[in-house]
């Protein structure tokens, strides 16, 4: 029920966001039409991080409370997170081409996102190479904790490493109010999408576990 409500809300906000991006908001910066990709890139990057924070929280709770449902949450969030991270990287490349003339550049935020992607990947690698399911879940939780602790250090070192590039538009404070509005709407819309996907994935996972449990009882 709650999920359907969320789906409806998400649908409405997607329509609104699309209208805002493609019809309502004027092209503002000297980048031209390319700037509109920000309205996708910013929410994707935000969700890549948010999903990892949720994975971290789920992992800590799983290790402390030893209840499978926290692992379901952590794992589902990681699955969605790696998709968003991948999309962020692709959009980054598409954006870099017209702006800097290359598909890939070791810009600080792109580099950090790339490293995050590899940490997400290792989260799934330990799971699939563990000797049994439970150990895999514990190992993955450890990776998530170590990975999240690493994120600020990665951000700091990559930023310093590339020198002080212009900080994100939003933080500079001179972003046009129209742009900011559309950006925030888009972030909100995608966050709704994330929560919806997360609830869906967790409930599927719960059902799978229940089926497994019943099968086991039968034996």
């Amino acid at each position: 029920m709650k999920r359907n409500l969320l789906l409806a809300l998400g649908f409405v906000s997607v329509v609104i966001t699309l209208y805002l991006i493609f019809v309502w908001v004027p092209t503002i910066t000297e980048m031209g039409i390319v700037e509109r990709i920000f309205y996708l890139m910013v929410p994707m990057g935000w969700l890549a991080l948010l999903a990892f924070v949720v994975t971290f929280a789920g992992s800590v709770l799983f290790l402390v409370k030893k209840q499978d449902r926290w692992d379901f949450l952590a794992r589902s969030s990681a699955e969605i997170g790696i998709v968003f991270t991948t999309v962020t990287l692709f959009i980054g490349a598409i954006w870099a081409k017209p702006i800097w003339g290359v598909w890939w550049t070791w810009e600080a935020r792109l580099t950090a996102t790339m490293i995050l992607w590899f940490i997400y990947l290792s989260y799934f690698v330990v799971r699939s190479f563990a000797t049994d399911e439970h150990r895999g879940a514990v190992f993955a939780a450890v990776v998530a904790i170590v990975g999240l602790v690493d994120v600020p250090i990665i951000a700091l070192s990559t930023t310093l490493w590339r020198g002080m590039h212009p900080p994100a538009l939003v933080f500079k404070g001179d972003i046009a109010p129209e742009m900011l509005l559309v950006m925030l709407t888009s972030v909100g819309t995608f966050t709704i999408l994330y929560v919806f996907l997360l609830m869906l994935r967790v409930s599927v996972r719960r059902d799978e576990a229940e089926v497994q449990r019943l099968k086991e009882l039968d034996r």
Binding site: D132, H134, Q212, R213, K215, E216
Partner: peptide, 10 residues
Amino acid sequence: GLTKVFGSRM
């Protein structure tokens, strides 16, 4: 009441 679960195996 010792129990041990390996994945879905008790």
